[in-house]
Design a protein around this nucleic acid. Structure first.
Length: 940
RNA sequence: GCGGGGGUCUCAUAGCCUGGUCAAUUGAACUGGCUUCAGGAGCCAGUGGCUUAGUGCCUUCGUGGGUUCGAAUCCCACCCUCCGCACCA
């Protein structure tokens, strides 16, 4: 790939713009002054947007003479208006759509909107309860109090439609080339779309990709739904974990169920801990009498256990009692410990002082605490309790917990931070390297990792243990309710674990193109680790699962193949097709081409023309040619997108409908910082459009980055683009100065460079590298034009045809990025068509004259050298004579042809010689230094 | 823990796969100058060090080793850092 050579046409560094912001809130006089001198890039946005619309320029219709190409970006979830973060992903989509359109494709670029799920419903609830933070979140987009009131009164569907409208306005305002006839918003506002989702799930189920299962989830007992990370006030990132509950029986047969993550240490238990000051309950759990914390009773009821609470009992009442170790049969005392938290798991804990730092220190504390021992009359019992070592671990002595406590300097039970550390350290160490000793009966000499599995299995099978789920740390729902783990029964899953399905997804990935290619590996990894995915929920908006209406299809699971709906949406919207006409058989015909149109038409009540039209649209426009999205969606949506496509279009002859390419981009930072509502650097797209205009917003964000790293929105760089565009406007007005028709070296050079740059820029566009595309298509191209202007005496001696071609080329090259400015420039130079649908410039290899490129480069380099020499030698240009000596004829000829231009350097006299010339003026014998590419220089 | 990505000259970025043409791309920023009513406009020059009539040399691409005639680029170790881990859009 040809890069711009080291020596550029004199580098231009546009002057800094320190007060970008001020420009846009200047006082009146200044605005007028600017209007007089500078072109306002915003002024013709409305004009072109309405002309495009009037000309139906972006409406894509079936045209079998042209190849189709479908560009999509995600349909946004409409609980707000677009901000610059979403803007990045979307603008990339539009730039690519515009590029492909100019490349001659019949581009279908449609945009729908997403309202499936919980957040909008939740937001409305919060508004109704007067939550000010929710009010603030909406107001960030500049809406009024009246709007907020309307949200609360009219409910979720109104809210969704409100924001949908805003999105459409903002996207249109940013110059998006969308076919708006194909827009829609998801369930429940679009019943035909719901029908599409139903068909999709019926089909997946028929093919065995939907199964039913049971699964633990973090659950809000108030909302009665799973609580995802986004729905949490506290505990973001926490997950579920399973405790083994070992049953220690009291003399009367009552069970003290001890929750533990280390069931293998049951051989080392010395006592049971309860919190003496806490309240417990006696409860009937699956027919047994357990003593547990009151919270545990509620949790267990949600974990497939039958629970009946009988009566309250204080922890202190249990202290001093004795129970049996279920495996060793040893008699163990129940002892008091404040470290016991009744809100965690069962609230009853088995004590393994040799291997658990908490238990070790608990025991030490108790032994020192004469008062407590006296109160419960347990002095002699406590005195008898000795740690039992059961695991040998390298680097630790007989009682590893003791060592760990000492190393970390744990003083008492109150050193919880150090205790946590000690516990974690020891747990890992023993789990990975520890070996059970002979106290462990049948498990002696086994590694801990192995013994743990076997012991757990044995305990559970013998009914000596049960299990209980907890969150890894407290989780609080946004409704302020403390969450716990619930085992959801009969949950519906997408069987992403299915190896055959995974293999097909991999096959699709293999056939696809990724921009950038680095993303491919991530998709493959995701396919590998993806497990079954719950695809239904009980709450929020969405399409009811067709065969089990108590569930609705979960939001990520219903938005996987919806791009196919865009191909149908025009006809469905225009002809107002009814959901009941869109039977499963009708969809089968549309998407798979199976069935008899005549019969189907009769059975469904859908007229035959519509039916065939729908099939034709799908068949023509599908597959997705390019889908662009943020990198956060790789691990979920984008991979599901692949999975579902290969599942639905499963026949060999249907593989042509599999997606062709995915573009992935990073997040958007604002001036180097992560964008967030709390930081106050959260910028609605609308504000930026108003401030800078669509073109500058587009190019500034899209050219800020081009791989999966985070992009950066920097207002500072706006003037860079602005000044280049202004230069082009100024140049457009001067083009008519060019009159010459003969070809000079510099013309050949410009032509060559232009075609060279077309090649490079096109390559970058094709791979969605818009930063580089900008670099070559805008910056390098304008640099060349500036250089050419300099060389031709500010265009007075420019070749008309070459200059015009160069100018038209640059206008086309920037059209996808800055469509309004490009359109305006296109018309300024006398064109009547729309540049938006003009054909992309073709790089013509024949027009790239390598010789001209090389010689101009030498010319440029020599000019710099001349200046350098003049400076170093301290010569005043105006009073000096310049002598140049060339080693080759072609250099000499080239420079002589450019003799006029050399005069602009300002020397009193310029003379040129060939080295071989015997009559040359060369008093200091400089000519001998000349070689090809480096003419010798003498100043006098 | 599991998985993925990074550390380049003031900042941000290119280069690394396919070693040399790399003191290293591009955009900003900064310094000086010009144009001169003014400028947030435009233009020129400079921005690792030393040096020079357009040059040459030295030291640089997270740290430390290694491979090689030669490494920002390949190998090894280490340090630092960013991101995702699900029922959620």
């Amino acid at each position: 790939m040809a890069k711009p050579k080291a020596r550029k046409p004199a580098k231009r560094s546009p002057k800094p713009t320190k007060h970008t912001k001020a420009k846009h809130r200047t006082s009146k006089p200044k605005v007028q002054k600017q209007a007089r001198e500078q072109i306002d890039l915003k002024q013709f946005e409305d004009k072109w947007q309405s002309q495009w619309q009037k000309a139906k320029l972006f409406e894509a219709n079936v045209d079998k003479k042209r190849p189709s190409f479908m560009v999509t970006v995600p349909y946004p979830y409409v609980n707000g208006a677009p901000h610059i973060g979403a803007g990045f992903t979307f603008i990339r989509g539009d730039v690519y759509a515009r590029y492909k359109r100019m490349r001659g494709f019949n581009v279908l670029y449609a945009q729908g909107f997403h309202a499936t799920g919980e957040p909008i419903v939740g937001a409305v609830k919060r508004l109704q309860s007067g939550d000010q933070s929710q009010v603030a979140a909406f107001k960030m987009y500049g809406i009024s109090d009246a709007d907020i009131r309307a949200f609360a009164e009219k409910g979720p569907e109104y809210v969704a439609k409100f924001w949908k409208k805003r999105w459409m306005e903002d996207l249109a305002g940013a110059g998006f080339s969308i076919d708006w006839r194909r827009t829609f918003i998801t369930t429940p506002m679009t019943p035909t779309y719901s029908r599409f989702v139903e068909w999709q799930y019926n089909t997946l189920r028929k093919r065995g990709y939907v199964t039913q299962g049971t699964h633990p989830v973090i659950w809000c007992p108030s909302c009665l739904s799973p609580t995802g990370d986004h729905d949490r006030l506290d505990g973001v990132g926490e997950s579920t974990m399973e405790y083994t509950v070992v049953k220690f029986k009291l003399a009367d047969g009552e069970v003290l169920p001890c929750a533990t993550l280390r069931p293998e240490t049951v051989y080392g238990v010395t006592n049971i801990w309860v919190n003496p000051d806490a309240e417990y309950v006696r409860a009937e759990i699956d027919g047994e009498h357990w003593i547990i914390g009151p919270a545990a009773a509620k949790k267990l009821a949600d974990q497939l256990k039958t629970v009946k609470v009988l009566e309250k009992i204080m922890g202190s009442e249990l202290v001093g009692k004795s129970c049996d170790n279920p495996v060793t049969k040893a008699k163990l005392p129940v002892l008091p410990a404040s470290l016991c938290d009744v809100n965690v798991a069962t609230g009853v804990v088995m004590s393994v002082p040799s291997h658990a730092p908490y238990d070790w220190i608990g025991l030490q504390d108790l032994k020192k605490d004469k008062q407590t021992m006296h109160r419960y009359n347990i002095e002699s019992v406590v005195a008898d309790v000795e740690p039992i070592s059961i695991i040998k671990t390298e680097g630790f002595g007989e009682h590893p917990a003791k060592d760990a406590c000492e190393r970390l300097g744990v003083q008492s039970q109150r050193d919880t931070e150090k205790l946590e550390k000690a516990t974690e350290l020891l747990y890992k160490k023993e789990f990975h390297t520890g070996v059970c000793n002979d106290k462990c009966g049948p498990y002696a000499d086994l590694k801990v990792a192995e013994a743990k599995q076997k012991i757990t299995k044995h305990l559970v099978e013998e009914g000596l243990a049960s299990s209980m789920w907890e969150t890894t740390a407290p989780v609080v729902c946004r409704c302020k309710t403390r969450c716990h783990v619930k085992i959801l029964e009969n949950q519906w899953f997408l069987k992403f674990s299915d190896p055959a399905w995974k293999a097909r997804a991999k096959e699709c990935i293999k056939r696809m193109t990724f921009y950038p290619e680095d993303a491919r590996q991530q998709f493959e990894n995701t396919v590998d680790w993806l497990e079954d995915k719950a695809c239904t929920r009980h709450s929020g908006m969405g399409t009811p699962l067709p065969w089990d209406k108590s569930w609705i299809v979960e939001t990520l699971s219903d938005s996987t193949i919806y791009m196919a709906y865009y191909t149908l949406a025009r006809i469905i919207n225009e002809r107002k097709l009814q959901p009941e006409q869109l039977t499963d058989e009708v969809f089968d015909y549309i998407f798979f081409g199976v069935g008899e149109p005549a019969k189907l038409s009769k059975a469904s009540g859908l007229d035959k023309a519509s039916l065939e039209g729908l099939h034709e649209e799908f068949d023509y426009f599908y597959p997705v040619g390019f889908r662009n999205s943020g990198k956060d969606l790789v691990q979920n949506h984008l991979t599901f997108f692949i999975f579902h496509h290969v599942a639905i279009w499963d026949k060999p002859e249907l593989k042509k409908f599999w997606p062709r390419s995915i573009g992935v981009n990073g997040y958007v930072n604002v001036a180097g910082e992560k964008m967030s509502k709390s930081k106050g650097n959260f910028i609605p797209l609308r504000d930026l459009l108003a401030k800078f205009g669509a073109d500058l917003v587009r190019i500034n964000i899209v050219a800020s980055n081009e791989n999966m790293d985070d992009a950066d929105w920097r207002e500072d760089s706006i003037p860079t683009y602005e000044s280049r565009l202004r230069y082009l406007f100024a140049l457009a007005a001067k083009l008519k100065k060019a009159k010459r028709t003969s070809m000079k070296p510099v013309d050949r050079y410009l032509e060559s460079r232009v075609h060279d740059l077309i090649k490079t820029a096109t390559e970058h566009y094709e791979h969605t590298r818009f930063r580089s595309a900008t670099q070559y298509g805008l910056f390098a191209m304008t640099n060349e034009l500036k250089w050419y202007a300099d060389r031709t005496g500010d265009l007075k001696d420019a070749n008309k045809k070459v200059l015009m071609e160069a100018f038209e080329t640059i206008v086309k090259l920037i059209a996808p990025l800055t469509p309004h400015a490009a359109e305006e420039l296109w018309h300024m130079i006398g064109n009547k068509t729309f540049v938006s649908t003009e054909s992309w410039p073709q790089a013509d290899e024949k027009k790239i004259d390598r010789n001209a490129l090389q010689l101009e480069d030498i010319y440029r380099k020599t000019m710099e050298d001349v200046k350098q020499v003049a400076k170093l030698a301290g010569k005043d240009v105006a009073s000096s004579k310049l002598y140049l000596y060339f080693a080759t004829d072609k250099e000499a000829d080239y420079f002589r042809e450019s003799a006029e231009d050399l005069k602009t350097l300002g020397f009193k006299k310029v003379e040129m010689f060939k080295v071989a010339d015997t009559k040359k003026h060369d008093p200091q014998d400089k000519a001998k230094r000349a070689k090809f590419g480096r003419p010798a220089i003498y100043l006098e």
